[in-house]
Design a binder for these strands. Structure first.
Lengths: 247, 247
DNA sequence: CGTCCCCTTGAATGAAGTCAATACGCGTGG
DNA sequence: CCACGCGTATTGACTTCATTCAAGGGGACG
């Protein structure tokens, strides 16, 4: 099975066999397993590694003093948490798992080393981090402007497309291992309202969702419902001028 | 007058005279003026420069198809828009001015050149871009979890502190050249509700605001009201190990 | 078989939005 | 100098969307 990260990066530019081997090396560096609903790193800790999700789902989140919690982003396989983190002395948010997770801890040294030797990979990783920033912006837009059903539909579109971009969908189906409370924390809604909203979307025939499996019968329709425009994911091989001629 | 950017970066690490001179060079590269309420660059355009705000306020924003508009972030003097943009072929959002703006357009070449020759400046710029990402996350938290008055109070704290970090405050006072509609677009509220909320905050004695001038009689109190924790701005000289011994 | 977590639904409440009218300053041109 | 227009701010009345509170159901697991 191919590395999810490599697969994702090829939406930006074609990688050579060497490039992929290097990614494999980074990903094998130091593998860690974390059980579901545990913290990978907490607010206040000093970041020591770039975390690369190999398997499972995780999220960034933040608590307000009074306990309210916002999930700030989701991580699916192939996602990297903050290329540059070691510049900061303190995490300003936490990263926690949703499911059981297998992740690679990439040290500063091996990262900087790879950076020098594999410029194309580097470019691709920067692209990925820019896409991450774009996703964060899109969440800002959604929380500010979209109503409940649009927000949830939008999030589902995004996650489905991101899963598809790393080869983890099966036709119109993919895993969606989030509880309704987690969806609520991500969309800024109450879990009760998330429940009702999912019911509506199901009733409209836009999604099916049972036992952690999501089915989207008509992605276009769902995208329309969500006012979803995929441009922010920059999946159009925007770095094709850097392509390796490898196959 | 010192360059706002240099001033800001020194919250991360001390710069040498050479470092500052280099920043000055980058900032003088190619200066552009844009009138208030115009676009610097629009969604769909290809980014060609890193924009550095020298004077005035600007913002990132995005429209939904049906016209709803969300302001995604504000730029004040010293702010850079996306160090790495040229990796992307298309802007997924627009940048527009709030007031008249003077900005520096930094080309890819001069940036990459400076990058090689001034590693400390580079680190500091990466720090700045990580802080930018942290600000975006904090907005996500606010839009998801904070109510109207907390959101507005929080935004005001943030902008005040950012202005202070580039030396643009005058005691408890600073410029806040936003209309209530712009505040509304940034906080995801209606302009009517922003108006009422500002009235409340004024009535509580937390802010004064007239003719584009903001006064915060008791910043601590306002921060408390907003559940504002400044850690995400990373202003604690986290890069002091890189300090130049210059004065 | 009981407990825990997650999902579901109803009813009452509340925060923020919409609609509409009015007021205020400021610049421009008659 | 005044009239007009425009963008911005303010306020009231009503509506709507989402939250809160409360209760019950279902499946997994010890």
């Amino acid at each position: 099975m191919q590395l999810a990260l490599a697969r994702k990066l090829e939406h930006f530019t074609r990688l050579s066999a060497d490039d992929k081997a290097e990614l494999g090396r980074l990903a094998g560096d130091r593998v860690r397993r974390v059980a579901a609903r545990e913290d990978v790193i907490m607010e206040g800790d000093q970041p020591r590694f770039i975390n690369l999700i190999l398997e499972g789902w995780a999220c960034r989140y933040k608590h307000l003093e009074d306990g309210r919690r916002q999930i700030i982003s989701f991580f699916v396989p192939g996602d990297l948490c903050d290329l540059n983190v070691f510049i900061l002395k303190q995490m300003d948010h936490s990263i926690g798992t949703i499911t059981d997770v297998r992740l690679a801890e990439i040290s500063r040294n091996s990262f900087e080393d790879a950076m020098l030797r594999f410029p194309r990979v580097m470019q691709a990783l920067w692209w990925d981090s820019l896409v991450g920033a774009a996703i964060q912006r899109e969440w800002t837009v959604g929380l500010g402007q979209r109503d409940a059903s649009e927000r949830i539909a939008h999030l589902i579109c995004e996650l489905f497309i991101r899963m598809r971009s790393v080869g983890l969908t099966d036709g119109p189906r993919c895993l969606l291992p989030l509880t309704q409370s987690e969806l609520a924390d991500a969309t800024g809604l109450s879990h009760v309202h998330v429940n009702r909203t999912l019911k509506d979307l199901r009733a409209e025939g836009l999604i099916e969702l049972e036992r952690r499996t999501l089915t989207i019968p008509d992605l276009k329709a769902l995208m329309q419902r969500a006012l979803f425009n995929p441009n922010y994911l920059h999946l159009g091989r925007e770095g094709r001028h850097l392509d390796a001629n490898a196959g």
